[in-house]
Design a binder for these strands. Structure first.
Lengths: 148, 148
DNA sequence: TTACAATATTTGTATATACAAATGTAAATT
DNA sequence: AATTTACATTTGTATATACAAATATTGTAA
């Protein structure tokens, strides 16, 4: 994926600008691929992420703030994201008894089931997206990512 | 930016999954910073990109397909993105005389003026975001990006 | 020359996101 | 105990995005 070819310019782009544009283009490719993989499940990337976080809780319920700090998305959406998962039967929400300001959100059996199916498709997408990388290169990439 | 710390897991994430998650987190940081920098101008990243493409045309008008193939966004939005730029007085649109299905879009003087102000802020954001990178590391990063 | 296909853009609609304000609850202060 | 402050979540609203369908124009073939 060559930046100049894609944005069709013959001008030399400064290194730092080029890096940011490159990142944007790659993100676009990646998120398109993932959205496509999740499409048959009728779920968005964000909803998928919330499901994964809930599973990661290993039965322990999560409240909205917890979800939010582990997510990419903004707080106000988290309520509605969870709404959608509940509507689909993949999550469950109860008001916390010890502190009624809080809510406790858990993943349902049905949620775990569909999530495991999604995992397979995600794994495929990851493989496809990263097919040109060796493990060493991915280690290098992650190492560089740490500098952001 | 360490993935495990951010998504607060103690489990080891497979290298390929980790890379994709890492990319998402970084994209989020970058786009937040850029949106913030553009905020005072009342313009979105996408609108900013269109303006830059128009400037890159060096006076030559661009049609929607051209804009679209150089952009990240989807076709149906391009019309409305341009609408917004026109409304702000930053772009101009006329129906192409040789082929009336096409439109010719150009950047206005006012557009060029505000764009040059935005460039300064963008440059600052890029510097801030990439402050931990040496030029060599950025070259390496761009090289790895080419494998996507 | 009429009909059909291809091209370029626009519009409709449903869903997603961002930001600010509102709600309800608990804790701290007077 | 009443008042204020802080916390956790929800709601309102404006804008953005995705996808499909519609519109308008041009090119092509019977």
């Amino acid at each position: 994926m060559n930046v100049e070819a894609i944005i069709k310019t013959d001008k030399k782009i400064p290194l730092r600008s080029r890096t940011i544009i490159h990142l944007m283009l790659i993100h676009n490719k990646v998120s398109e691929q993932i959205s496509h993989a999740l499409k048959p499940f009728g779920i968005s990337i964000q909803q998928f992420n919330v499901l994964r976080i809930l599973r990661g809780q290993q039965g322990k319920p999560a409240n909205l703030s917890t979800l939010n700090e582990r997510m990419v998305s903004k707080m106000s959406n988290t309520t509605r994201l969870v709404d959608k998962l509940i509507k689909k039967g993949y999550a469950h929400r109860i008001v916390c008894t010890s502190n009624r300001r809080k809510v406790e959100i858990t993943i349902t059996q049905e949620g775990l089931k569909v999530l495991s199916e999604m995992d397979i498709e995600m794994k495929k997408s990851e493989q496809e997206l990263l097919v040109n990388f060796t493990d060493l290169e991915l280690e290098q990439l992650n190492h560089l990512f740490n500098k952001f």
